[in-house]
Amino acid sequence: MKVVYEKCLHCGCCVGSCKQNAIYLNDYILEFNDACNRCRRCIKICPVGALSLEE
């Protein structure tokens, strides 16, 4: 996952949306674990478009 921290509001929207529990909001940093199945839910739900999949 790629996070554009210049946009991110640390709102946790993506964390709660992830069915795999693959995201953790550590202070102001998002940590992603291996459970991610690239479903893109977090990307869609982010209110400011701070997330994208790494190629």
Binding site: V15, N21, Y24, K44, I45, C46
Partner: peptide, 23 residues
């Protein structure tokens, strides 16, 4: 709160359908 990870760590399903959440 919305992140609701404690429940998931403990084995409770706190996930939502996309139709059941608002960004």
């Amino acid at each position: 709160g919305f992140e609701s990870q404690v429940g998931r760590w403990a084995g409770i399903d706190t996930t939502l359908d996309l139709t059941d959440m608002c960004s």
